[in-house]
Amino acid sequence: MFEAKLIQGAILKKILDAIKDLVNEASWDCSSQGMSLQAMDTSHVSLVAVQMKADGFDKYRCDRSVTLGMNLSSLSKILKCAGNDDTITLKAPDDGDKITLVFEAKNESETSEYEVKLMNLDSEYLGIPDTPYSVNVKMPSHKFQRICRDLQQIGDAVTISCAKDSIRFAAKGDLGSGTVNLCQTASADKPEDSVSISMQEPIIQSFALKYLNHFAKATPLSPQVSLSLSPDVPLVVEYSITDDDGSDFGYIRYYLAPKIDE
């Protein structure tokens, strides 16, 4: 039996909003450690990895590991039926072919129950090397979202370069070009507004903005986003997931293969 209860059901709604347009179908791997998912987009250019730790749930029971394969747009449609303040409980019997979602409104006697069909998916699990990166940048997530959205008006790709204590995002296209330069800040009063840059070596790499704009749909999950870059390896865009009390619940990490000069 698998059962996971989340009083702040809105977190699960936000997670689905952040992945459903990138990945159609994926499997949740549920173990005593928590729920995790890894999936590539259909063109195999990007990869998303989600982790929700067991102790972040308000109740978590997983008698034996289960893989819950599902259509994410179906799951997202069902989660739209839950209110932002609802408690969400996921339930799956050991050998069932569906998952049950129970939504309970706060301070009300209303409970709704939905079922989503499970699928057997041939998902390939990719090994992600745990390597240090040349550049790590932490910045406000809304700022990253805005830069990606603005630069997509100019071109299809963004060139990210980092030197000393600044990071530069640049795009060019038929209409002209645009650049956004961010310098490291020291705003200790408001850590969520700060930009911090840690650089081992300067870097310059280009990425498709279409995917970065998909990743930015995770913005409501976290006030800060972390970008990790190294020469000729995929970019990592990470949003940590915290609950209202600020406790660490897990993360969404997106990996994006670079564009290379032919």
Binding site: L47, L126, I128, S206, A208, P234, I260
Partner: peptide, 13 residues
Amino acid sequence: MSQKTITSFFKPA
């Protein structure tokens, strides 16, 4: 510019 795929960097575990 050409787009690389993620599978050219990460291999099946």
